[in-house]
Write a protein that binds this DNA or RNA. Sequence first.
DNA 1: CGCATATTTGATAGATTTCAATTTATGTGG
DNA 2: CCACATAAATTGAAATCTATCAAATATGCG
Lengths: 247, 247
Amino acid sequence: MEYSDQILIGPFLRRLALHSKLTDAEQRALGELPAEVEHIPARRDLVRIGQHVADACFIVEGLVGRFEQTSQGQRQITGLHVAGDLADLNSVVLPQAYSALSTLTATTIVRLPHAPLRLLAGDYPGIARAFWQESALDAARLSRWAANLGRKDAVARTAHLICELACRYLGSPPTAFDLPLSATQSDLGDMLGLTRNHVNRTFKVLRTADLLTWYGSKLRVLDFDKLVAIAEFDPSYLALSSFDANG
Amino acid sequence: MEYSDQILIGPFLRRLALHSKLTDAEQRALGELPAEVEHIPARRDLVRIGQHVADACFIVEGLVGRFEQTSQGQRQITGLHVAGDLADLNSVVLPQAYSALSTLTATTIVRLPHAPLRLLAGDYPGIARAFWQESALDAARLSRWAANLGRKDAVARTAHLICELACRYLGSPPTAFDLPLSATQSDLGDMLGLTRNHVNRTFKVLRTADLLTWYGSKLRVLDFDKLVAIAEFDPSYLALSSFDANG
DNA sequence: CGCATATTTGATAGATTTCAATTTATGTGG
DNA sequence: CCACATAAATTGAAATCTATCAAATATGCG
């Protein structure tokens, strides 16, 4: 165990508390969960489709994607998890995985066994509700992600992805900033439902319009507001405190 | 009140019991929820984006869609709810709606106020877990829906939609059957991320291949297995008992 | 340096949208 | 039952977007 549990789970606790009111006892109970850090390289499966999962992955650092795959080997990323997310909390109530979970970058995680999570949810209604709410937010993000794939062209779709990621990384709408998006353009294609080839062209368009630059595997956003406009991005579905209060 | 509550909620109870074990007391408590039937015409909003919702909609009969919409008036349907679904159970923990909910056909619903649902979830851990699980299944369907939009062409996408709907209507994989899909091709376009124009052409392809017929607003599937093959459809994510057991 | 991987670019084919028009259903009032 | 109005389905042609194939250029790494 490298850090104290409290420090690890802290960001997630803050996130939960943001939407749900947790009593001191509930917060303490969450903080006492067993936690052992694991360092995982990029491009590794945390969960495979069909696997019977026995723990949920808390992301300490890094970027993790939710993958669907066709038999042809085609992949579609349907959601992302950043530091502070409890990536597959769903698995507590659905142990059989219907999507895969893979690291996009080198990632530090903590595996939280289902058993104590179930006990917590059973003993503390506030925790049960907070967990359920996380799944509901997951669904809200997935729904928006689907709308993106269905009804926006490559440029707007890409802009929307960048906006979502920026807000979730920073917790607030930024102006100009660096996004540690160390994913390849292939990965971006899997997120956007585009070929890596077309991702490249699309980024070129955004670069030419002076909306962003792309150096190394880091993205610098130059004009967030214009990206928001192109993407028709409305951050309220992310339920981040910086944007609006949420009951 | 037109029917007894038990009869109304019955299908949903059976669905819940399919995944989660509920005690007799829990089932009884659910059965005692207040229930008043409402008949709603096609093409009406049950929930608008941004609205602060105070009850969840149980679908007794009909077809309801989850809508995302762009400012340009473009719409994308990201999921469907059929008879027996508790459509926006999510709203119990996320009262502010991030997606709209609209009827696609004439629909009979029961509005279940949040307050008693919250009490039930607080008093009975089994119910809390069952509700959470419904949200998790919602997320699983949304993820697959997104993958569909991102990585399949019009024909495969359409085939997949039909397969999902068929399985959810019938609860089991059918051979040849009628699908009461009384949605216009425009609505289908909103589901599939296609123009109504291209939906029409796509159905023509499926018809020409003798996979289905389309008369009135009813769909007859002629070759379910071939549709499954085209769609690369794997029903396990629907967690219907007829396909596989689910922990 | 040499290799592997990722990015960039070009040319072409294919899929889908858009615009436009026609035909076919569906409903409504007389 | 008919005439009419309206909405939906069907079809066509052109424009646009994206994928596919192929190659060239960077970039990182041992």
